[in-house]
């Protein structure tokens, strides 16, 4: 089942340090905000209000819901996420397929969960609980991992397909995480795209990282790798997903450098759209971004 989603186009993770560049790009269709930063602050910051008034969608993106945790979901966090979605008039909210805390210990990090039938049952139960409590659809993101659980019985594509079959959740496809996982744990990112339910993708993340000691770190603080831009093109050649956004969280570039990356993303979306039309792919065309 595919929910009707707005055409988002180009997006970016909202950061105050990037406000000038974001406000000066009329083609920005959506921004993502770190949900937990806004749970308790009543006022919407003025630049975000300006974007909202222009019709830019504001998507609350949570990191603390712990959907992949085997412990019970905290109803207070769920309620806060729902209230924020209403305050921002968001079309949906997003969270991660991950766990972040256990036994009262916070890690501040998105950690992998075991891809087993037992974990899938728990995750599906958590997602359904969240979906029932939230006033808007829930969109789930694949994470970057440096290690896997030893007892994994499914690969990532099989696990994501199973989640989509058993819940109404949409996907936030993080192409940089797919790229990083392929580099760190093996696998072919394009072959993975071919096995994913792309009609369930609500939007896409791209970002940069760097390699140290044989490990590619997903930092959101380094330039966007060309291989990740190529994955945007490969994705759009397969399906017209509603939007792609850049995440940049540190070592902020100047406006010109940021705009070059955003332009590269838009160009990749356009090239992919052309390829898709030329090849006449069977995937449903939701929109022409």
């Amino acid at each position: 089942m595919a929910l009707s989603l707005p055409n988002l186009g180009l997006g970016i993770g909202w950061r105050a340090q990037l406000a000038h560049a974001i406000l000066n790009r009329p083609d920005i269709g959506f921004v993502e905000i770190l949900a937990e930063d806004y749970f308790l602050n009543e006022a919407i910051p003025a630049p975000l209000q300006t974007l909202h008034d222009r019709g830019v969608h504001i998507i609350p993106h949570g990191v603390g819901l712990n959907l992949g945790g085997a412990e019970a979901i905290d109803p207070a966090r769920l309620a806060a996420l729902g209230e924020l979605a209403q305050r921002m008039q968001a079309p949906f909210v997003s969270e991660h397929i991950a766990f972040v805390r256990a036994a009262g210990l916070e890690t501040g990090h998105l950690l992998p969960i075991p891809r087993t039938p037992a974990m899938l049952d728990i995750l599906v139960e958590n997602i359904r609980l969240a979906e029932a409590a939230l006033p808007v659809p829930l969109v789930l993101e694949n994470i970057a991992i440096l290690f896997d659980w030893p007892n994994a019985e499914m690969d990532e594509a099989a696990f994501l397909n199973a989640i989509c079959e058993r819940t109404d959740a949409m996907l936030l496809l993080d192409l940089e995480n797919i790229y990083a996982n392929a580099r760190n744990l093996g696998g072919d990112p394009v072959a993975l795209l071919d096995r994913l339910p792309l009609e369930r993708v609500a939007y896409v993340h791209v970002a940069g990282g760097y390699e140290a000691n044989g490990i590619f770190h997903d930092t959101h603080a380094h330039p966007l790798p060309e291989d990740v831009v190529a994955l945007v093109e490969a994705l759009y050649a397969r399906a017209a997903v509603p939007g792609v956004m850049l995440e940049r969280d540190d070592r902020f570039p100047d406006d010109a450098e940021l705009n070059t990356e955003l332009d590269a993303i838009v160009a990749a979306m356009q090239r992919g759209n052309i390829e898709r039309h030329e090849r006449g792919f069977a995937h449903p065309v939701l929109s022409d971004a």
């Binding site: 085997a70 412990e71 766990f99 805390r101 256990a102 036994a103 890690t107 990090h109 950690l111 969960i113």
Partner: peptide, 17 residues
Amino acid sequence: SREAIAKTQADLVRALV
């Protein structure tokens, strides 16, 4: 299975933290 996975998740978090 929630209990079993919760235990391994807790062990993993203790190892990390």
